[in-house]
Structure formats: structure tokens, C-alpha cells
């Protein structure tokens, strides 16, 4: 009887003290909001380019409090620049409190790369999957640049790979010092994803020399570049 009571009060408690978090991914190139096709940008190497496609997987979100306790959501999401509704994700049932950091995976962890047919964001029909060398494509950045010597002056970075030494999974860690989750309320984080970072720091990509990365060759160079493409723009706490 006592255990039932405890269990009941526990479940009532946890329900009452939970809130939600919206994470908004805002795709940029440098300081400008990304506009597909028409806008022309300059990369670190001084080459002009436009973007025709930008997609990436994020998931396995960990929100951490100062005392080290964590909220974990292991789901994956596919952020597509050309589909507005994919750029906003919602995490539910987060215990209330102050969270100091948000960690997530850019890419898809190795277990999910090996577990066969899946649906939802990980449905291979989404076109973010290599069939001949099985695994997810973690990030696609495609566009045009007069500097590229590929036909149609296109460039394409399709980055994936979960095996050593070509592992392109990257852990992203963002400080969220003043994020507060309150019970029955929905707070939000605005994240900036800077597509330009794919082509810079630490390695400046020269589109005349490297207009295409579509398998494990050179993939980790790009992965080390895209590792720092995320930053927090703003946090909105609903109290």
C-alpha cells in the first residue's frame, strides 16, 4: 500500500513539474539569414556561392542542470531548409529548473546507422541515406559557385560516416546559462546554424579544388568544420 502511495504521488509530482522546450533552428550564412537559390554569398576563400539545398540531422538532446542532472531525449530530427516546419522541434516532459547547457548530436549515432529499416526522420526515403555503403548522410550542403569546375558550377558536400577513422558524428555543446523550464510552460531556444562554417575553420575550403565531398574521402575535414556552426541566438523563458 505504502509503495503504491509513493508511486502515485511520484507520478503526480513528475507530471505537475514538467515543462516543454522549443528549439528553433535558424539557418544563416555568416550574418545573413539563409535564402536558397537567389542570394549570393562569399566564402572564407573569397569565392562567391549560392546555396540550393541545406539539410542536417540533429538528435540525442541532453539538457544539463548545474548539479549535473540531465534530461535526455534520444530522438532524431531532420532539419530541412526548404521545409519550415522541420526547423522547429519540441522536447516534452522536461523537469522544471534552470539548465546550464544543451548538448546534441550532429548526425546519427552508430547504433541507428546499423539498425535496419526505420521510419520518421530516419526513413531512408528522406534521401539522406547511402544504400551502397550503408549509413545516413548527416549533412547536405549543395549550391553553385563560379569557382567550381563541376558541370553547372555546382558544389556538393554530403557528409556521413559513423566508423573510425571516418567518423563524422559530432557532439555539439551549447551553453544555455539562463534557460528556465517551468511546469506547464514552454520555453524556447533560438539556435543559429551558420552554413558558411561548413567551408571554414579549421580548414578553409577552396571550391575550385574541393567542390565535392560525397564519401569518406575528406569527409572528416568538413565534419571538423561544421562542428562549430551552431550558436545560441536567444533564449525565451516562459514562466
Amino acid at each position: 500500500m505504502a509503495t503504491i502511495l509513493v508511486a502515485m504521488s511520484f507520478s503526480i509530482n513528475t507530471k505537475a513539474n514538467k515543462g516543454k522546450l522549443i528549439i528553433d533552428f535558424n539557418n544563416y550564412v555568416g550574418n545573413e539569414i539563409l535564402k536558397l537559390d537567389s542570394a549570393v554569398y562569399k566564402n572564407e576563400a573569397g569565392q562567391s556561392f549560392s546555396v540550393t539545398n541545406f539539410k542536417y540531422y540533429v538528435g540525442n538532446f541532453h539538457l544539463r542542470k548545474a548539479d549535473g542532472t540531465e534530461y535526455i531525449s534520444s530522438d532524431y530530427y531532420l532539419i530541412k531548409e526548404d521545409e519550415q516546419q522541420t526547423k522547429q522541434i519540441m522536447l516534452n516532459d522536461i523537469p522544471e529548473g534552470n539548465y546550464v547547457s544543451c548538448t546534441f548530436t550532429l548526425g546519427v549515432d552508430s547504433a541507428h546507422n546499423c539498425s535496419g529499416a526505420q521510419s520518421g526522420a530516419l526513413d531512408p526515403a528522406n534521401g539522406m541515406f547511402w544504400a551502397w555503403n550503408t549509413g545516413y548522410i548527416f549533412m547536405k550542403l549543395e549550391g553553385k559557385s563560379p569557382s567550381s569546375n563541376l558541370s553547372g558550377h555546382t558544389f556538393e558536400f554530403h557528409i556521413g560516416g559513423y566508423k573510425y577513422p571516418n567518423n563524422c558524428i559530432r557532439e555539439i555543446n551549447l551553453k544555455t546559462n539562463n534557460l528556465i523550464i517551468s511546469s506547464d510552460k514552454t520555453s524556447s531556444i533560438e539556435i543559429k546554424t551558420d552554413a558558411e562554417e561548413v567551408m571554414k575553420t579549421p580548414v578553409t575550403i577552396d571550391l575550385s579544388k574541393l567542390p565535392s565531398v560525397t564519401d569518406s574521402r575528406n569527409a572528416t575535414i568538413i565534419a571538423n568544420n561544421y562542428m562549430d556552426m551552431f550558436s545560441v541566438l536567444k533564449i525565451n523563458n516562459e514562466k
Partner: peptide, 18 residues
């Protein structure tokens, strides 16, 4: 496959289909 590129039986058919 002859090169072992496919890691799970379930996803193999994506190759011939596509």
C-alpha cells in the same frame, strides 16, 4: 554484397530499387 558495403539485411533492397 561482394564488397560488404551493406550493414543490415533490411536496408539491402534500397540498392537494387534505386
Amino acid at each position: 554484397m561482394w564488397d560488404g558495403g551493406v550493414n543490415n539485411l533490411e536496408v539491402q533492397p534500397i540498392n537494387p530499387i534505386t
